[in-house]
Design a protein around this nucleic acid. Structure first.
Lengths: 330, 330
DNA sequence: TTAAATTAAGAAAAGCTTTTCACGAGGTAA
DNA sequence: TTACCTCGTGAAAAGCTTTTCTTAATTTAA
């Protein structure tokens, strides 16, 4: 059914080598043969087998992507950016989702190794010994998005979470907040948990708050946990502003406050992280630290492809964020 | 750097054939050799090259996916379902987005052909001559999601759009509507445009409306077009219900009605299609025909993989929908 | 005219694995 | 003992393309 290069060669009355030379535009083929081959190529619609090509060149032009959940809009935007940029450079992507489970992540890495992808982009939260082993063994370069894992072979792309959280908290203070609580991520998440907490802490101390009395509770980035923690905070202390480590938790907090009859932003200001699509249409709309995942995806793809092609790249890329002011703050 | 099967063979003191037999559990290797090989495999972490394997078996265990836009929640759910089910069967997915552009779709098909994927899942709106040619030439089976294209080699997975629109309109009538307008899709979109219109038409006629006076306007599935068309409808005729061909347009319609001071659902009931995540949290929340894209994705993957493996499959799968009643209808 | 260089094109190897074929050893049945 | 099986194993081919190596033919330079 499917033709191969030998068939084409026979049809054109030349050798496979010549056909290959025509297809790849490596010189040394005279005009007449060239045209005969091109004619047959057009008629048959022959396409060279990428497997055989990959075997020779030790390249597949495929990037392997691992994200926790593609139906989370942040990650789908990220993947969209990666795919867009990758395709512009002649690369395709194999996509797998991990649900943030380590074993699945490791499985994916191994699969990508078998498939001989040219590079791997990984978005996850933890860096276990097994992750390290896979990266050590991998011939394909790794890029981690959204974390600052330290590994000699690793590229990372991330925002400066510490500074972003600091800026967000300072913004709340500038809007008259005196007592800010944080609905944070788990501290083992070094980026969205730990670093954002540290930024928050700096700003709080700078504004005269006592670090001992600071309210920080760990959620799991869901709307539900935001709701639950907001309720718990209300029982402990009177606050006039809440900084959440992502938009979902911020939205949960707003829902809780409105259920309790507390006005946002008049009595309590709320701020999130990410700029989820829902944050704009929610009522009240959410002030947040916008992270452009689509652009981030492009940056990831470009950096990794450069690395693959031996072009010098920055090892730890920081990309910009932006505070988007809406109705949940004064 | 990277080991191959010859290296493993040398280390274990056997031939490559024997190593292969151990890896693939094809019998005829005695226990002693087997253990020696396994030991080396464990120590080295060797993984066979999928390219070479694919070349021999004429199989890649990869499915190619083409969707218009991965950051549209419907498609990301679809892809998530596909990926989940595919992985359960030992397949991976290469993902490309087309923006609904024909040339890109065709390009993707050709790329998938070169990469020798085992099957292709395509979500698009039109079926041109070029699409047909690619499907004719493809050795990999095709599955189309969300359309009813006719082609001998084609599998399709879809809801019964005609019946669903009929049911939706009948639901509105049952809630007291007398004059229903439809904000539809373009009629060249045979599924979400044409078929949903036909279903709406049947229900309208059945309820004594004059087909000549029926209001149907074509939008492009965006919130904006829903808003614009709603406004246009209000200028033409008094209606007490609107059926939109998707949720985005329905939400646009609600926004328009509320801007005009018209109460939903008291004065005008609104209903959509899809059950977008936003539809639930919008105010008022939207009554809609829920399409479970995640399940649909699983169905697609399963059907296609069965086809690949020579298992008899239904050529045109219809999967269920469900009317979700919320606050935009009485 | 001879030597050197260039061009054109095929043969064959390489890339890595699986599978078929062939072969020897050991066992069983007649 | 002979004939036939089974088992375990390695050599080699096949899958498809690219690239290197050769060779032959033609052109250019001396």
């Amino acid at each position: 059914m499917s033709l191969n290069i030998k068939d084409i060669a026979k049809l054109a009355g030349v050798s496979p080598a010549t056909v290959s030379r025509v297809i790849n535009n490596t010189g040394n083929v005279n005009e007449e043969s060239r045209e005969r081959v091109l004619k047959i190529l057009g008629e048959t619609g022959y396409k060279p087998n990428a497997l055989a090509r990959g075997l020779i060149h030790k390249r597949t032009n495929i990037l392997g992507i691992v994200v926790p959940d593609i139906s989370n809009i942040n990650f789908s935007e990220l993947v969209k950016g990666i795919e867009k940029e990758a395709r512009n450079h002649g690369y395709n992507i194999i996509l797998t989702t991990s649900g943030n489970e380590f074993e699945k992540e490791i499985e994916c890495f191994q699969m990508y190794n078998e498939k001989r992808v040219d590079g791997i982009i990984f978005s996850g939260t933890r860096f276990t010994e097994n992750h390290k082993i896979e990266m050590d063994n991998s011939t394909a370069p790794f890029l981690v998005f959204g974390q600052d894992f330290e590994h000699e072979k690793l590229l990372t792309v991330n925002i400066d979470n510490n500074k972003a959280a600091y800026d967000a908290a300072m913004f709340l203070f500038s809007k008259g907040a005196k007592n800010i609580a944080m609905i944070g991520g788990p501290l083992w998440d070094r980026a969205a948990g730990y670093s954002r907490f540290m930024g928050f802490l700096s700003a709080a101390v700078e504004n005269g708050l006592n670090p001992k009395e600071l309210i920080y509770e760990e959620g799991d980035f869901t709307i539900k946990s935001g709701y639950r923690i907001m309720k718990s905070i209300l029982n402990k202390k009177i606050v006039d502003a809440v900084l959440a480590a992502n938009d979902f938790m911020a939205l949960g907090a707003i829902k809780c406050l409105s259920d309790e009859g507390i006005s946002v932003p008049d009595e309590v200001q709320v701020m999130g992280f990410d700029d989820n699509i829902i944050s704009e249409i929610y009522n009240p709309s959410l002030t947040t630290v916008k992270i452009d995942f689509y652009e981030a995806g492009k940056i990831c793809a470009k950096a990794l492809i450069n690395k693959i092609n031996g072009i010098e790249v920055e090892k730890n890329v920081k990309f910009p964020y932006e505070i988007v002011v809406r109705k949940s703050t004064k």
